[in-house]
């Protein structure tokens, strides 16, 4: 990924730090922000390392540790909680074979809890990367996972040709 190309989409001001960090994280196959990337961000924004790191430390959506290709965020806000956050986590565990905050062995998924996704009308909901999936049941979750697996398998195959 070209760090500088992504950053140059924004003017070098601190008001753009969140957008820049999100774009860089999304562009990384392991959904995280390595140290050398952060150094470049600090340099681009003409600021110090800690002022970049402090932002990441504050926002749980930003990570400095490798995660996986797709981040599944399970909403744990009161409405989703009442409608079954725990059931969703368990269903994910069944389909993926991993719990919270660890990658699947194929490096494809990573599950973590999230604050309100703002989609209470379809609770319980999860967010996979930037897509919302709501009104979840164990089956629905299975389908979603299979669909994404299939899609990324295809991408891999196509890339292989």
């Amino acid at each position: 990924m070209d760090i500088h190309k992504i950053m140059s989409g924004y003017t070098p001001g601190m008001e753009n730090i969140l957008n820049i960090l999100h774009d860089l994280q999304d562009a990384h196959p392991m959904n995280y922000l390595p140290e050398h990337t952060l150094r470049e961000v600090a340099r681009y924004l003409n600021t110090t390392l800690s002022s970049v790191y402090g932002v990441i430390g504050y926002y749980t959506m930003l990570s400095t540790k490798p995660r996986a290709r797709h981040i599944i965020r399970v909403c744990q806000s009161p409405v989703c909680h009442l409608m079954g956050t725990n059931t969703v986590v368990e269903a994910l565990r069944k389909h993926l074979g991993v719990g919270l905050n660890e990658p699947t062995p194929d490096g494809l998924f990573w599950v973590e809890l999230s604050e309100c996704t703002g989609t209470c009308e379809v609770a319980p909901a999860i967010m996979i990367d930037r897509e919302i999936y709501g009104d979840l049941s164990e089956n629905a979750i299975g389908n979603i996972i299979s669909m994404i697996r299939e899609k990324s398998g295809k991408v891999k195959k196509e890339a292989g040709h």
Partner: peptide
């Protein structure tokens, strides 16, 4: 005029950092 320090984490567990902690 150096701005080397910041803080990380939130609420009660937040603390001061320099650089990448």
């Amino acid at each position: 005029g150096k701005n080397v320090l910041s803080f990380t984490n939130r609420g009660i567990t937040s603390y001061i950092i320099a650089g990448f902690d």
